[in-house]
Design a binder for these strands. Sequence first.
RNA 1: GUGGUCGUAGCUCAGCUGGUUAGAGCGUCAGAUUGUGGCUCUGAAGGCCGUGGGUUCGAGCCCCAUCUUCCACCCCA
Length: 470
Amino acid sequence: MSVQKPSIPKGTRDFTPAEMVRRNYIFNTVRAVFEIFGYLPIETPAMENLSTLMGKYGEEGDKLLFKILNSGNYLEGIPDIGYQMTDDSNSGSGIRHQTSEIGALTRHISEKGLRYDLTVPFARFVVQHQSELVFPFKRYQIQPVWRADRPQKGRYREFFQCDVDVIGSPSLLYELELIQIIDEVFSRLGIETTTLINNRKILAGIAEAIGAPEKMTDITVAIDKIDKIGLENVCLELKERGLSDTAISSLQPVLLMEGKINQKTDLLGDLLKNSETGMKGIEELKHLCRLLKDLDLRNKWTFDVRLARGLNYYTGTIIEVKANEVSMGSICGGGRYDDLTGIFGLPGVSGVGISFGADRIYDVMNELNRFPDTIQHTTKVLFANFGAEEESFALKLLSIIRLEGIPSEIYPESSKLKKQLEYASRKQIPFVALIGKDEMGSGMVTVKDMNSGEQSQVSREEFIRRLKNS
RNA sequence: GUGGUCGUAGCUCAGCUGGUUAGAGCGUCAGAUUGUGGCUCUGAAGGCCGUGGGUUCGAGCCCCAUCUUCCACCCCA
């Protein structure tokens, strides 16, 4: 039998201890901030029923769901409608026929999927547990999610999201709170960020105002690209998406909008004066900006009409955070969703939340070298092993040291000292305790400082004190 | 889903227009040095050249497929 080379699925990663220490630093920081703002943790299963997940993330999102094959004889009971690939892929109708067959087959053989984000499972959770919860319900959730995307820079198929949401209140105070959380998290992590803020109602209003309310998604997707492809190409794309020339030209002032937030909102107010939704959006945005101005946030924030956000459950404020010093997709994003629980039978409940992308934050911090050195905690002291007698003597002291809360270990066999010291050196253990016959007699401990190479004989008390102070 | 890209020792890579037995550095292990790590020296182990087909007298090298890596688009954390 030949050995097979081990591997892990595309877009997934193993994490070494060195990486985990850094990842935990991010998780701990995020968690600590969430908790001082009064949020409590929940967890939900890795898998959800597909009926819970499907249709919540738009057409694209549905395609990116990892589906789980039913257990047992999953082919049982499939109606005989012929799931063979027909070879008429050059005819348009043939392709449609095939995809609908695949869809039908999928529904038969798969009823569960891996979660795509934490927001939709959260909405499901709220509906199921509504009788036990106190509203507004504030929770945080740090768990992995899975997307069948093509991996690339900052994009994985398995990654951790750190979500904070509050559900059961339409108050803009919560939008404010979330932006404060963003500011606090990134200040603590030492990343300079810019928080982009927009409002779906404004986008809807714009679509309405230029006479194409049903084209809101097309419009937002196109104008989001203006920095990337330029004004002319954006106009071209809008035309391809079926917008009239008059509609496109009336969009121009919005696209080219510059200046202070007030100037932008004034201009938009003029354009959207006949759209009730649009005016509501502007009102919300102005209110939020007024609240934000009174706080001294350390990181930048700004209003950006071009911010779109694809997840189609958002209905109000939308937020996205970018790192200023590196090129990376957004490292945090979210917004308000007015009726996510409605689909699950609990209508009229507004929620707002954001999600920190732990893996991208990790990549950003790594690139910028922002991890403090102090987080590398490892064993503090290694007890050298000189043989059976010395070993049992050392084990007793080791127990005492551990009771003092000092991470410590003993070398497993009485190998050459050279080897034992090499082990300590490679593991970056700062101290080695040498207890041989002499030390056993005198009751002292020989401590070697691995950084300086110096060693000295000290009493047990002094030994413990030194380890604690280092 | 679309387009490109990478894959040779544990790691980073070299390997000429296809030609004997596939190399280097680092790392690993052993020794020089039996209670003292990092430096140095000596030696050793380690490879179905991502996988499967094909072309050829002959393939690490050419062709096809497939998987994987990285990147861009789409979309997103």
